[in-house]
Design a binder for these strands. Structure first.
Length: 507
RNA sequence: GCCGCGUUGGUCAAGGGGUUAAGACGCCUCCCUUUCACGGAGGAGUCACGGGUUCGAUUCCCGUACGUGGUACCA
């Protein structure tokens, strides 16, 4: 397997935002493909036109790009196994479905939606709230198994609306080896006759994955655990159509859960944190759902936190770059059980990445933020120096505004309460004189600003510590930020003196 | 209901027949810093339950509970 090309695919449907579970699945797909020197393929599952949302396909690729994941083959990147949109492969599915009918593994079903509903209502009971179209039920329905051959032929010729269903065998144990769960098995009698080809001629997911995986020579198929229950259908299809020996290896990823149960794609707002990679603007509903990107997450942190939610390399390492993940990832170490998403920890990862990365990697984001708030950034070098000074205090990108904006504009207000109780005439005098001395400084740098301050304090017989906090309030407006003298050095002589004088009027 | 999958602190988790059951986030205390962080040192808190198997089970087996997914002409 290692010798021949590993081909892994991610098959999203363009129906909405890319949520956490989705991104993690792509990520694992991608890591596995890269680690084994294989191809990473993105195929679009757009066979359900009713749910199709304009722009969703592009959105998916935008998210991947932001995460640093580049597909080798996709509708946008090209490749030798196209088309990469299921809607463009419609013709071939019909052939395979007919082939299955001929071999006796599938059949035509002419039941109308109304008739199906009637059947379900009739059979519904306390014990069986959702009756299936299964081995016993199909004998009482309108299909090519129960109707005479000539009648079936006639209906087909008249183009009567129909679907093709798989004929689940009776009393057969269907099992396969999942790369994460190990041996998984199902009893065929308990699985229903899934629709393979819809009345509109489009395949259902079941037929499409199998046919596409075969035609695209997929070797490994990783998907969310929500697919595990329908795996027996896929296994059977592989057996009937292409042979089990050609079937890709399956891996069903554990689910990502919300704070209370399952993580719903919808109201992410109720958790207070995003559930999508990037802002998702639903053209159908007009709803805007916030993404991790826009919330202020770095892509490095985002993929890092997702990668280790359900996987670890067995060491104590927690911070991984994409390159390290490619090197260290192994599907065998992926957890079986689902994990609750913890936003606090997610923020911690972002904080770590902000600290770890050189500010030049993300200063453009902060610059955009400042610009949008009306602060023009002219001196990039100076700007980066400021960011370097405050980055330890920033968890999300927007934090840079509160942590650094005072370097570029006078504080809007002062935390008067922090200084007033201990204020005295001595201190006013000190600062007045300090201003004069500062104004006289030729070589404006941190050492001299601090020395001047301390010597004057000693001369006035005031503890420097009692003066530093007021000075901070004057320059910053509040009790936070790097060393005061560092700030003074950064904002310049004129600005420092101005801020002190202005504050003095109020203190 | 039925079927599948799962279950180590509040959360993410290492481990796996005999361990003082790692580590991280969060929380608390202290140190550093006359700010806020960063950093450092500590602390509280755990093997879902019941039966087996075994000299011994958190680890293996069987049940139960709980969680979660499926049960669509959605993916």
């Amino acid at each position: 397997m290692e010798q021949s090309t590993v081909r892994v695919r991610f098959a999203p449907s363009p129906t909405g935002g890319l949520h956490l579970g989705g991104v993690r699945t792509v990520l694992y797909n991608y890591l596995f493909a890269r680690k084994h020197g294989g191809k990473f393929i993105v195929r679009i599952e757009d066979t359900d036109q009713s749910r199709f949302v304009e722009g969703a396909e592009q959105y998916i690729f935008d998210c991947l790009k932001w995460c640093g994941i580049e597909p080798d083959e996709s509708p946008l990147h090209g490749g030798n196994y196209g088309p990469y949109r299921q809607s463009e492969r419609k013709a071939s599915y019909l052939e395979y479905a007919k082939d299955l009918v001929e071999k006796g593994f599938a059949y035509y079903a002419f039941d109308t939606p109304e008739e199906l509903e009637e059947m379900r209502n009739k059979l519904k009971s306390e014990e069986n709230p959702s009756p299936q179209y299964d081995g016993t039920v199909r004998n009482n329905m309108k299909n090519s198994l129960t109707m005479p051959a000539d009648e079936v032929k006639k209906l087909l010729e008249e183009n009567t609306r129909h679907v093709i269903r798989i004929k689940m065998p009776g009393q057969e144990t269907i099992s396969f080896t999942d790369m994460i769960h190990g041996e998984v098995s199902f009893e065929s009698d308990l699985v229903d006759d899934k629709v393979l080809l819809k009345a509109d001629g489009m395949p259902t997911y079941h037929l499409a994955v199998v046919v596409d995986d075969y035609l695209m020579k997929i070797t490994h198929a990783f998907r969310g655990e929500e697919w595990l229950s329908s795996a027996p259908v896929h296994i059977l299809l592989w057996k009937y159509l292409f042979g089990l020996e050609n079937m890709p290896q399956w891996a069903h990823m554990p689910l990502i859960l919300g704070p209370s149960g399952k993580l719903s794609k919808r109201d992410g707002a109720k958790y207070g944190f995003p559930v999508f990679a990037m802002n998702w603007n639903d053209s159908k509903t007009g709803e805007l759902t916030e993404g991790f990107k826009e919330k202020g997450f770095l892509p490095e942190a985002f993929i890092n936190l997702l990668a280790v939610l359900g996987w670890n390399d067995g060491t104590e390492q927690e911070i991984f770059s994409l390159e390290e993940l490619i090197e260290k990832f192994s599907i065998e170490r992926v957890h079986k059980g689902g994990a609750k998403f913890d936003f606090e920890k997610a923020k911690w990862y972002n904080h770590e990445w902000i600290k770890k990365l050189d500010v030049s990697n993300y200063s453009f984001l902060v610059k955009d933020l400042f610009t949008s708030k009306g602060i023009a950034v002219n001196d990039e070098h100076n700007f980066n120096q400021v960011l370097e000074l405050v980055k330890d205090r920033c968890t999300l990108i927007p934090d840079f505004y509160t942590q650094a904006s005072y370097f570029f504009k006078t504080p809007d207000s002062w935390d008067i309460e922090a200084v007033k109780p201990k204020w005295s005439e001595d201190k006013t005098a000190f600062f007045n004189e300090y201003c004069i001395q500062l104004a006289a400084i030729e070589n404006w740098e941190i050492g001299i600003i601090e020395t001047t301050f301390k010597e004057l304090a000693a001369a006035k017989n005031i503890k420097p510590g009692e003066l530093q906090l007021p000075m901070r309030i004057m320059l910053v407006g509040a009790k936070f930020g790097p060393a005061v003298f560092e700030i003074a050095a950064m904002i310049g002589k004129t600005e420092t003196v101005t801020r002190i004088k202005n504050a003095l009027k109020v203190f």
